[in-house]
Computed example of a mutant assay.
Amino acid sequence: MFAEQDLEATARVRSLFADIPPSDPSIALFKDGELVHFLPRHRIEGHSAETMAKDLTAMFEEYAG
């Protein structure tokens, strides 16, 4: 979902993790409709593609593997 592209979709997704402040960009992983992992802007920006790939791989292995 891309914030500001679809305001209704943005509001719906943000309602799923209302206790976490908005962060753009961010990555949210849901499993069975529940938020299981969230990467905010400070864990994304300034990191290399390799670091992000490792973080995402670990996240998916932990929750979807």
Rank of each mutant, 00 (worst) to 15 (best):
M1W: 09
S26H: 05
G46F: 10
V36D: 06
T10N: 04
A9L: 07
V36C: 06
G65M: 02
R41P: 02
K54P: 04
F2H: 13
E50D: 14
L7P: 07
T10M: 09
M1N: 10
M52N: 08
V36G: 02
A11Y: 00
D24T: 14
T57N: 13
L7D: 09
D24E: 14
P22R: 06
H42M: 12
K54A: 12
A11D: 09
L35Y: 04
F60N: 04
H42P: 14
M1G: 11
E62P: 02
P25F: 06
Y63K: 02
R41T: 04
Q5F: 08
R43A: 14
H42N: 13
E62A: 09
P21I: 06
S23V: 02
E34D: 13
F2R: 15
A64T: 00
I27T: 07
A64M: 00
L35G: 03
S26N: 11
R41A: 04
L29H: 01
R14V: 03
F2C: 11
I44K: 01
F30I: 04
E62W: 05
A9G: 08
Y63E: 03
R14D: 02
S26Y: 05
K31F: 10
M59A: 04
T10R: 03
A58V: 11
T51F: 14
R14Y: 08
D19I: 11
P21R: 05
F30M: 05
E4G: 09
T51D: 15
A28E: 03
P22T: 07
T57W: 12
E62I: 05
K54F: 10
M52F: 15
S48N: 10
G33T: 06
E8P: 00
T57S: 14
F38V: 03
F60K: 00
A28H: 04
E4Q: 13
E62H: 10
V13Q: 02
T51R: 12
S48V: 07
M52W: 11
A49W: 12
A11I: 01
M59S: 03
G65K: 07
